[in-house]
Lab assay of single mutants.
Amino acid sequence: AFSSEQLARLKREFNENRYLTERRRQQLSSELGLNEAQIKIWFQNKRA
């Protein structure tokens, strides 16, 4: 489960760009304390 802070950040990123570069995913992973797979799957689900 994502914290409300993490979700807000993911939604902001998604609004700016529906697709993440690998580098951006790595940055978000480290900033949010999530693993890259969690972020990747969140974006895939959000696009679906």
Rank of each mutant, 00 (worst) to 15 (best):
residue 46 K to D: 04
residue 47 R to D: 07
residue 24 R to S: 05
residue 33 G to V: 04
residue 19 Y to A: 05
residue 8 A to T: 09
residue 23 R to W: 11
residue 12 R to I: 12
residue 22 E to C: 07
residue 4 S to Q: 13
residue 26 Q to D: 05
residue 6 Q to K: 04
residue 43 F to N: 00
residue 37 A to L: 13
residue 41 I to D: 14
residue 17 N to L: 04
residue 34 L to D: 00
residue 38 Q to S: 09
residue 32 L to D: 01
residue 3 S to P: 02
residue 34 L to E: 00
residue 25 R to Q: 12
residue 31 E to G: 02
residue 24 R to Q: 09
residue 2 F to V: 05
residue 5 E to K: 07
residue 20 L to E: 06
residue 40 K to A: 15
residue 47 R to S: 08
residue 20 L to P: 15
residue 18 R to Q: 13
residue 44 Q to M: 11
residue 2 F to H: 03
residue 15 N to C: 13
residue 9 R to C: 07
residue 2 F to M: 10
residue 30 S to P: 01
residue 33 G to W: 03
residue 21 T to R: 04
residue 40 K to N: 14
residue 11 K to I: 15
residue 23 R to E: 15
residue 4 S to T: 12
residue 28 L to K: 01
residue 24 R to T: 06
residue 20 L to Y: 03
residue 7 L to G: 03
residue 21 T to K: 03
residue 19 Y to T: 07
residue 48 A to M: 11
residue 48 A to K: 13
residue 13 E to Q: 03
residue 39 I to N: 01
residue 10 L to G: 02
residue 25 R to A: 15
residue 32 L to R: 00
residue 45 N to R: 10
residue 22 E to L: 10
residue 46 K to N: 11
residue 20 L to W: 04
residue 15 N to L: 12
residue 12 R to H: 11
residue 17 N to K: 05
residue 9 R to G: 07
residue 1 A to I: 11
residue 9 R to L: 07
residue 36 E to D: 06
residue 11 K to Q: 15
residue 32 L to T: 09
residue 11 K to D: 15
residue 10 L to Y: 01
residue 28 L to S: 01
residue 34 L to S: 02
residue 19 Y to G: 04
residue 15 N to S: 12
residue 13 E to C: 05
residue 46 K to L: 07
residue 31 E to A: 05
residue 21 T to Q: 04
residue 41 I to S: 11
residue 15 N to K: 12
residue 42 W to S: 00
residue 41 I to N: 10
residue 36 E to Q: 06
residue 32 L to Q: 00
residue 21 T to I: 02
residue 46 K to I: 09
residue 31 E to F: 03
residue 14 F to R: 02
residue 43 F to A: 02
residue 41 I to R: 12
residue 33 G to S: 06
residue 13 E to R: 02
residue 1 A to W: 13
residue 16 E to C: 10
residue 18 R to C: 08
residue 16 E to V: 10
residue 32 L to I: 08
residue 39 I to P: 00
residue 36 E to W: 04
residue 9 R to I: 13
residue 12 R to P: 00
residue 33 G to A: 05
residue 44 Q to A: 12
residue 40 K to Y: 13
residue 10 L to H: 00
residue 48 A to P: 05
residue 33 G to K: 07
residue 45 N to K: 11
residue 38 Q to E: 14
residue 38 Q to A: 12
residue 3 S to G: 04
residue 9 R to N: 04
residue 27 Q to S: 08
residue 43 F to D: 00
residue 14 F to T: 01
residue 6 Q to E: 04
residue 17 N to Q: 05
residue 21 T to V: 03
residue 34 L to V: 12
residue 46 K to E: 15
residue 38 Q to I: 13
residue 19 Y to F: 13
residue 5 E to Y: 10
residue 32 L to H: 01
residue 7 L to I: 11
residue 36 E to Y: 04
residue 20 L to G: 01
residue 47 R to E: 10
residue 38 Q to K: 06
residue 5 E to D: 08
residue 18 R to F: 06
residue 44 Q to V: 07
residue 27 Q to Y: 08
residue 5 E to L: 09
residue 31 E to H: 03
residue 35 N to R: 09
residue 30 S to L: 14
residue 31 E to D: 07
residue 29 S to P: 01
residue 6 Q to W: 03
residue 43 F to L: 03
residue 25 R to I: 15
residue 40 K to I: 14
residue 26 Q to I: 09
residue 11 K to L: 15
residue 28 L to N: 00
residue 46 K to Y: 14
residue 45 N to T: 10
residue 48 A to I: 09
residue 35 N to I: 06
residue 5 E to M: 07
residue 35 N to Y: 06
residue 47 R to G: 07
residue 30 S to I: 15
residue 36 E to T: 06
residue 12 R to F: 13
residue 3 S to W: 03
residue 25 R to K: 10
residue 4 S to H: 12
residue 42 W to D: 01
residue 46 K to T: 13
residue 29 S to H: 03
residue 26 Q to W: 06
residue 46 K to M: 15
residue 21 T to P: 06
residue 24 R to N: 04
residue 37 A to P: 04
residue 23 R to H: 14
residue 42 W to R: 00
residue 26 Q to H: 10
residue 25 R to Y: 13
residue 17 N to R: 06
residue 43 F to M: 03
residue 30 S to Q: 14
residue 43 F to Q: 00
residue 16 E to R: 10
residue 7 L to F: 04
residue 44 Q to N: 07
residue 20 L to A: 04
residue 4 S to V: 13
residue 29 S to K: 04
residue 7 L to Y: 05
residue 42 W to C: 01
residue 41 I to M: 14
residue 13 E to A: 10
residue 27 Q to K: 09
residue 17 N to M: 04
residue 2 F to T: 02
residue 20 L to Q: 03
residue 41 I to A: 12
residue 36 E to P: 11
residue 34 L to F: 03
residue 22 E to V: 13
residue 11 K to H: 15
residue 27 Q to G: 04
residue 11 K to R: 14
residue 23 R to I: 14
residue 23 R to K: 13
residue 11 K to G: 10
residue 21 T to S: 12
residue 32 L to A: 03
residue 19 Y to V: 10
residue 17 N to S: 09
residue 44 Q to Y: 10
residue 33 G to H: 07
residue 28 L to E: 00
residue 36 E to G: 06
residue 43 F to V: 02
residue 5 E to S: 09
residue 23 R to Y: 13
residue 46 K to F: 12
residue 37 A to I: 13
residue 35 N to W: 05
residue 47 R to L: 15
residue 20 L to I: 08
residue 27 Q to A: 10
residue 9 R to P: 01
residue 21 T to W: 03
residue 38 Q to P: 02
residue 38 Q to W: 10
residue 1 A to L: 12
residue 45 N to C: 11
residue 19 Y to H: 14
residue 35 N to C: 06
residue 34 L to I: 12
residue 7 L to M: 06
residue 28 L to A: 00
residue 32 L to G: 00
residue 34 L to W: 02
residue 22 E to N: 12
residue 20 L to S: 02
residue 34 L to Y: 02
residue 48 A to R: 10
residue 8 A to V: 08
residue 22 E to F: 10
residue 44 Q to D: 15
residue 27 Q to R: 10
residue 24 R to E: 08
residue 24 R to K: 12
residue 6 Q to V: 12
residue 47 R to Y: 09
residue 17 N to V: 04
residue 34 L to C: 07
residue 47 R to C: 09
residue 45 N to Q: 13
residue 14 F to Y: 10
residue 14 F to E: 02
residue 18 R to A: 13
residue 1 A to M: 14
residue 39 I to T: 01
residue 15 N to W: 08
residue 1 A to Y: 12
residue 42 W to P: 00
residue 2 F to Q: 02
residue 5 E to A: 13
residue 31 E to S: 04
residue 4 S to N: 12
residue 39 I to A: 00
residue 27 Q to E: 14
residue 14 F to C: 04
residue 40 K to R: 12
residue 8 A to N: 09
residue 38 Q to C: 10
residue 24 R to C: 05
residue 33 G to I: 03
residue 21 T to M: 03
residue 45 N to H: 11
residue 48 A to C: 09
residue 37 A to V: 12
residue 14 F to N: 01
residue 15 N to P: 01
residue 31 E to T: 05
residue 42 W to M: 01
residue 24 R to W: 03
residue 2 F to D: 00
residue 1 A to C: 11
residue 8 A to R: 10
residue 4 S to C: 11
residue 43 F to C: 04
residue 21 T to A: 04
residue 30 S to Y: 13
residue 25 R to E: 07
residue 6 Q to S: 04
residue 29 S to V: 08
residue 42 W to I: 03
residue 3 S to D: 06
residue 12 R to Y: 12
residue 7 L to A: 05
residue 41 I to V: 09
residue 29 S to E: 04
residue 32 L to W: 02
residue 3 S to M: 04
residue 22 E to T: 12
residue 19 Y to N: 09
residue 6 Q to F: 02
residue 28 L to D: 00
residue 36 E to I: 07
residue 32 L to C: 03
residue 41 I to Y: 09
residue 21 T to L: 02
residue 31 E to R: 02
residue 16 E to S: 08
